[in-house]
Design a protein around this nucleic acid. Sequence first.
DNA 1: CGAGCACTTGATCTATGTCAACGGTAGTGG
DNA 2: CCACTACCGTTGACATAGATCAAGTGCTCG
Lengths: 179, 179
Amino acid sequence: MSRQPRKTDPGAEIHAAGSEGKAWRLTEGVVRFDSVGADGHGSFASLAIAGDLIGCETLLFGCYTFRATALTHCRLDPWPEGGVADKPALLASLNRIQQRAADLVALRGGQASERVLGLIRLLTDRNGRVILPTRQDIADITDLRFETISRIVKQLERDQVIRSIRLDGVHATRSFALA
Amino acid sequence: MSRQPRKTDPGAEIHAAGSEGKAWRLTEGVVRFDSVGADGHGSFASLAIAGDLIGCETLLFGCYTFRATALTHCRLDPWPEGGVADKPALLASLNRIQQRAADLVALRGGQASERVLGLIRLLTDRNGRVILPTRQDIADITDLRFETISRIVKQLERDQVIRSIRLDGVHATRSFALA
DNA sequence: CGAGCACTTGATCTATGTCAACGGTAGTGG
DNA sequence: CCACTACCGTTGACATAGATCAAGTGCTCG
């Protein structure tokens, strides 16, 4: 029995921390991971963007370490494709996780506007389009406040660093093209 | 020909970004990793503490992605022990890297004193002892300024959250015991 | 002894947080 | 259709944590 690809809406929980499940490759969208404390409250831990793996810790433990939440429309494909992960695939994902971690650290240091711009660049596709998470999610990722994010995004728009575009099914405040 | 364990002094470069080499397990000490830009300037990217792997990306690329610098006296053992990494070992390190990344993200968010305390806890051994990096390195890790770190560490000492201890070969301002 | 480093501490400044009010849009139920 | 609610985003006024600038201490090494 092979698993099916899975699609999610923005805001939907993909899996809870500690729940059982398998690993996936995120082929479209953005996912946030949260560490969940004993009280059930979560704090932002990591991010996955298209191409990243989700839940590879299940290969070791059988259950997920973090809570995963879709920040945009997402598509998840079962991983590993053949059902069994080989060593080169593991090495590649290990490397990707390491790189992503360095990106995240960079998004939490320096000037507020640089951080937001950094995240926008990270999320921009090869056509120069971005679908942003909500202001609150951007704030959680960058450790800023949503009011600050709102001001910065507006300012980037005024400075014509980004320009609002219209994609169907996406809030007007969240789809942009890089200038 | 099997490689020898390696020891380093605080401040020493363990390897440069892009240089060729193998993977190691850090058995003692703390190491910082920096992304190195085209201009040769580095920015803090990640941290390894005792038990973590260093340079597992060499299994894939043959060379190191980041610059590695010893923050304390360190001991490095060749990895994998047998010369070839098996899948369970890879999965375990993948998991460890993921966990470490979440720790790091947490160290860069919230109140300054909480971040510093978080780092201190992360670096404390099972006997409640810590050897801290320099104030500047702590600042780079937490994205604060060294003056701020100095004030916070002193305050933690005054509040008796930590207490200065004397370890030979270590600056008096850097070895502490948790209260 | 002098130079260089790491650390400490005080005074002041400022980027960002906080609080508050309001607008737009989607959904829901009458 | 409208009324109502629930979000999400925007904007202004003001507060403050931490940055910045500056001066001085103590240690180590040549």
